[in-house]
Design a protein around this nucleic acid. Structure first.
Length: 320
RNA sequence: GCCGAGGUAGCCAAGCCGGUCACGGCACGGGUCUGAAAAACCCGGGAUGUCGGUUCGACUCCGACCCUCGGCA
């Protein structure tokens, strides 16, 4: 098996990545690593759309720091990195990339191909290209800095790390999170890390917004029927609205409802819109990346086209 | 029919006593992204119900009309 020849399947929510991934994995004997920043949370199945097969059993393989790595079988295909941490736990793109790396080795040991599949672009990016600076999140510092005004954060960064300030674009200079992160790196001494270079074929499965709107609408209704509200109630018994996991689509929108400040209908409307906005933002990633090919889900031959690309990727030299 | 309230963008909504290209929010469109990313942030286009009147000048004042809402009948 070709080492380090990854297949990446990326696309907006509700475009149909998972079923595509399972099909391809079966045919090309792959195992899937889920790149989903919300499905890493245990106990959050309906809202995050894990779509676990009925009676699916979690097979734990190893524990690394706070994360548990294991797999579920989807029609015979192993899907890794679901249910990694509890909803009360913070997680990061970097930590995900580390786990994904470890899982990768397991999969290769089994002589299987590695498929990375998911909609969390930043997670994929962290795995595929690495993250430049090494500096762990310092939540105490972040909390302290978050009390400063935008202006103060900007001035601070200009003083402490002027080069970084220069690099930031207009949008980021107004983004407290980015400024805080930059200050966090600066106070840690600015340690650079080597860039990663992965050999991969990226499939970017896309669709028009009107198509996605329809799909999202369906999903929203399905998930409500499946008992999303009950799932949230159960979560609230153990966690709170402040828990990292609960700050997810399909959950956070129901906070006003559960607190009596909005009707169910209003909450659902908000949720639907948030999902659409999310899909729109997802559509922006990787669209000009040289290793990604974009295929529209609305083309009649989309599956065929992808199939050919994958085949070429695995069986032909320089097949991209 | 009478009384009261009101008609500002797709929706919600500011606009004291008339004076630069009419505040915002949501939606919509376009983007950013290096350890919170389903996050956070940036940019953009659109509006004064209709007809008259007063005035140098009206979203703002007056009149009529047309709608909407609440109450009385």
């Amino acid at each position: 098996m070709e080492e380090n020849k990854f297949l990446v399947i990326y696309g907006p929510t509700a475009v149909g990545k998972t079923s595509l991934g399972i099909k391809l994995a079966r045919e090309f004997s792959g195992e899937i690593i889920s790149a989903d920043s919300r499905q890493i949370y245990r106990e959050m199945d309906i809202g995050t759309g894990k779509d676990l097969p009925p009676g699916a059993v979690f097979h734990q393989e190893f524990v690394y720091k706070k994360g548990v790595a294991g797999w579920y079988s989807f029609s015979g295909v192993k899907v890794w990195l679901l249910d990694v941490v509890s909803p009360g736990e913070r997680f990061s793109a970097f930590e995900w990339a580390v786990l994904a790396e470890k899982v990768t080795r397991k999969i290769l040991q089994e002589k299987k191909r590695v498929f990375l599949l998911g909609g969390s672009a930043f997670y994929l990016k962290a795995f595929l290209e690495g993250i430049d600076y090494q500096q762990k999140p310092d939540w105490k510092l972040r909390e302290k800095l978050s009390r400063l005004s935008l202006r103060e954060l900007q001035d601070k960064l200009k003083n402490i790390w002027p080069e970084r300030w220069q690099q930031l674009n207009y949008a980021d200079r107004h983004n407290p999170r980015r400024l805080i992160r930059a200050l966090e790196i600066a106070q840690g001494g600015i340690r650079k890390r080597e860039k990663k270079e992965r050999n991969f074929l990226g499939i970017r499965l896309v669709a028009s917004l009107s198509f996605l709107r329809k799909q999202i609408k369906k999903r929203v209704e399905e998930r409500l029927k499946k008992g999303l509200l009950k799932e949230i109630e159960a979560l609230l018994k153990k966690y709170s609205w402040e828990s990292p996991g609960l700050n997810s689509l399909a959950y956070k929108e129901f906070k006003p409802f559960f607190q009596g400040e909005a009707t169910l209908e209003e909450a659902c409307q908000r949720w639907f819109l948030d999902e659409v906005h999310y899909a729109k933002r997802q559509l922006l990633w990787f669209r000009n990346h040289p290793c990604f090919v974009s295929v529209s889900r609305e083309d009649d031959d989309w599956e065929l086209v992808i199939h050919k690309k994958v085949k070429k990727w695995y069986y032909e030299k320089n097949g991209r």
